Computed example of a mutant assay.
Amino acid sequence: MNFRRLRIFVEVVRQDSFSRAADIVAATQSTVSKAVRQLEEEVGAPLLDRVGAHNILTPAGEIVYRRGMKLLADRDDLLVELAELRGLKRGTLRLGLPPIGSSTLFAPLFTAYRRLYPGITVHLVEHGSDQLEQILRAGEIDLAGLLLPTSEDFDSELVRSESLVALLPDTHPLAARSSIRIEDLREMDFILFESSFSLHRIIYDVCRRAGFDPSVVAVSSQVDFVIELVATGLGVAFLPQMIAAQRLHGGVRAVLLEEEGTAWQMAMVWRRNAYLSEAAQAWLDLVRHRQTV
């Protein structure tokens, strides 16, 4: 049913006049008459009984008028909601973030986003990179914080690139060095993050390139717990330099790991050619803006 004709008909009934309705809808009187006639043809029944100077609704006209007002109101509500989405007054951002680095990299962005778009609901999930990638691929989230490189199925925006550091007990002979190679740690026990974390895979890969498999004595998903284990002398662990610097511990020393292919490159990632909602696009725009200021 044509909404323009329906609105004209409703105004004719409201104004009880074709001429006044024409003024309301900014049309000529002949256009109004034609629109009502076309609506009657579409319905297949007369809608108005013209008695003298008045227009009386027929039974069919009463139905069309009553239902028509609701249809027009619903259409207006629809347009308002879409406008609010475009203006980011409403909507949902489905965001996946990793436990490592999120508090440093994304907490300030999250706060800025909430301040700019208080009407947007943020649905946040936290997992290691491998699980986040699966969730993103399934379309359950719009964007995810993942370590590069990622699958060719994704597009990405680099957020931060950091060197890795080896965390050693401050009493260890190697703790006084300014830098270290993975080969120097061959005989040490390793404390790693869980296998779903990209950092786990990075360390295993660099060890294997050096010709050995690490001796793993503990696996965790908690940064602070890993640092405490290092402080007790249990073994060596690894973190991005930025994160290690913010988690200073009197019993731990951070030594730069000089190995190719160990850069910790955090990126915001989304499915290639996927539709990004206005809310997701606004988050991505904020990420890009924050990298330039």
Rank of each mutant, 00 (worst) to 15 (best):
M1I: 15
M1Q: 13
F3N: 05
R4Y: 08
I8H: 12
V10M: 10
V10C: 12
V13E: 05
Q15Y: 07
D16G: 11
D16F: 05
S17G: 03
S19G: 03
A22M: 04
I24G: 01
V32C: 03
V32T: 10
V32K: 09
K34C: 05
Q38C: 03
Q38E: 13
V43H: 04
P46G: 07
P46H: 08
P46D: 02
L48N: 01
L48M: 14
D49K: 10
D49A: 12
R50Y: 03
V51R: 08
A53P: 03
A53N: 12
H54C: 06
P59Y: 01
P59D: 03
A60Y: 11
G61D: 04
L71I: 13
L78W: 11
L82M: 12
E84P: 01
E84G: 09
L85S: 07
R86L: 06
G87K: 09
R94G: 02
R94H: 07
L97N: 08
P98N: 02
I100M: 01
S102Y: 00
S103E: 02
F106T: 05
L109F: 03
Y113K: 06
L116E: 02
G119K: 03
I120W: 02
H123Q: 09
H123M: 00
H123C: 00
H123D: 13
V125P: 13
G128M: 06
G128E: 04
S129Y: 02
D130Q: 05
Q134K: 04
E140W: 07
E140D: 03
I141N: 13
G145F: 06
P149Q: 10
E157W: 02
V159K: 05
L167Y: 10
L174W: 10
L174N: 02
A175R: 11
R177E: 14
R177M: 03
S179N: 07
S179T: 11
I180V: 15
R181F: 13
D184I: 09
L185R: 10
E187D: 15
D189H: 10
I191W: 12
L192E: 09
E194R: 15
H200F: 10
I202P: 07
D205Q: 13
R208L: 09
G211V: 12
F212N: 04
D213R: 05
V219R: 09
V219H: 07
Q222A: 15
Q222E: 13
Q222L: 14
Q222P: 00
V223N: 01
D224N: 15
F225Q: 15
V226H: 04
I227W: 14
V236D: 03
Q241G: 11
G250Q: 05
R253A: 08
L257G: 04
A263N: 14
W270F: 08
W270K: 04
R272T: 11
N273W: 04
N273C: 11
N273F: 09
E278M: 07
A282H: 09
W283P: 03
L286W: 14
V287P: 00
H289E: 14
